[in-house]
């Protein structure tokens, strides 16, 4: 256990798997795997974008034999969406890091690790005899090599074309169409939106303070999450004000020195695990950190890991933590 005195809740079930990971920083693999082009993002009419993107991305090429479709994925966000749709991937790159960064939904034990996503093991991949291989912009340079094994489709959430949550919704629908699970995708999307709406109502009643969501890089630097990222989108959707106002990069974070947090004033602080073990004790020895309102009044919460660069399942996981605290 940690020496410092912040609230660190106990956990149950699979969600707790990574909690005792003694090391680690918040740099999730997924943070690096998503997105490719740095295109400026402007909030457009959300619904229009959603519909348009879904139509663009879908291009249903495969017959609707979803139950038997074997899909290999080079991306966590697409993998978690597939699991939510009831079609777990047969192979996933970096599968070994899942329990550390994604945690939920649980990756079925049968999912084969395809190796490093920058150079997935084609011999292993071919032996799985996939019907479809899903990539993102980020691993696109392998598409030519992969296409000798199975048809390759690319779906990217973090490409800057729309705020992450909106794009995640569009990609969910597109993916559903692609694998013949359009109905499931629509249902899952509706379920997610209903979940967010419910939380928004409860939060409005409870009257929540603004929050600052961050990950520690080391004892002096943090990542703060903001628009157009997934976390910021979720906070909007569930009616909690994000204390970090500046627009961030297209993955929705900004790396800042800790002292910059002072400008967020009275906001509560949500820290995502894993936290480098020396970070909080080191900061605790300096007045600057101790005097932050959230720290001083014990309103800093360390949350279990949630993929900040994921799709709707990760968004719901974070929404749960943000509403109900770490014990959710």
């Amino acid at each position: 256990m940690k020496a410092h005195s912040f609230r660190r809740p106990a956990h149950r079930g699979a969600a707790a798997v990574s909690l005792d990971d003694p090391q680690g920083r918040l740099a999730s693999r997924q943070q690096f795997l998503e997105g490719f082009q740095s295109v400026g993002t402007r909030q457009a009419s959300r619904r229009a974008v959603l519909a348009g993107l879904a139509a663009l991305l879908a291009a249903p090429v495969l017959p609707a034999r979803a139950a038997s479709l074997r899909v290999a994925v080079l991306d966590y966000a697409l993998a978690e969406t597939l699991i939510a749709l009831g079609l777990p991937p047969v192979g996933l790159s970096n599968a070994r890091g899942w329990s550390r960064w994604v945690v939920e939904p649980v990756l079925p034990a049968g999912t084969v690790d395809l190796g490093i996503d920058l150079a997935v093991n084609r011999e292993v991949l071919a032996s799985l005899k996939p019907d479809l291989i899903l990539t993102t912009d980020y691993v696109a340079q392998q598409e030519e090599a992969l296409s000798v094994i199975a048809p390759v489709k690319r779906l990217t959430i973090y490409d800057g074309s729309a705020p992450a949550l909106d794009k995640a919704k569009a990609v969910t629908l597109a993916l559903g169409d692609m694998v013949g699970l359009a109905a499931e995708a629509s249902r899952f999307l509706a379920e997610t939106e209903a979940d967010f709406a419910g939380r928004k109502q409860r939060n409005a009643v409870a009257g929540r303070r603004p929050v600052l969501v961050l990950s520690f890089m080391d004892a002096r630097h943090v990542r703060v999450y903001g628009r157009p990222g997934l976390a910021a989108g979720v906070l909007d959707a569930i009616g909690i004000s994000n204390a970090w106002k500046p627009e961030t990069n297209l993955w929705g974070f900004e790396t800042v020195p800790v002292e910059r947090l002072a400008q967020a004033g009275e906001a509560d602080i949500l820290v995502l695990d894993p936290v480098p073990p020396d970070a909080l004790p080191t900061l605790q020895r300096g007045p600057l950190w101790r005097e932050l309102p959230a720290v001083k009044r014990g309103r800093l919460t360390v949350l279990p890991p949630a993929l900040m660069f994921g799709a709707l399942p990760s968004a719901r996981r974070f929404a749960r933590f943000a509403t109900e605290g770490a014990s959710a």
Binding site: R25, H221, V258, R285, W289
Partner: peptide, 25 residues
């Protein structure tokens, strides 16, 4: 970094030398 990339960001900041301080210590 490639194999244990969860440390990437911290390492890279260290490699780049940031002078930011939060105390006199």
């Amino acid at each position: 970094t490639l194999v244990e990339d969860r440390y990437l960001a911290g390492l890279l900041i260290w490699g780049a030398g940031s002078l930011s301080q939060q105390s006199w210590e």
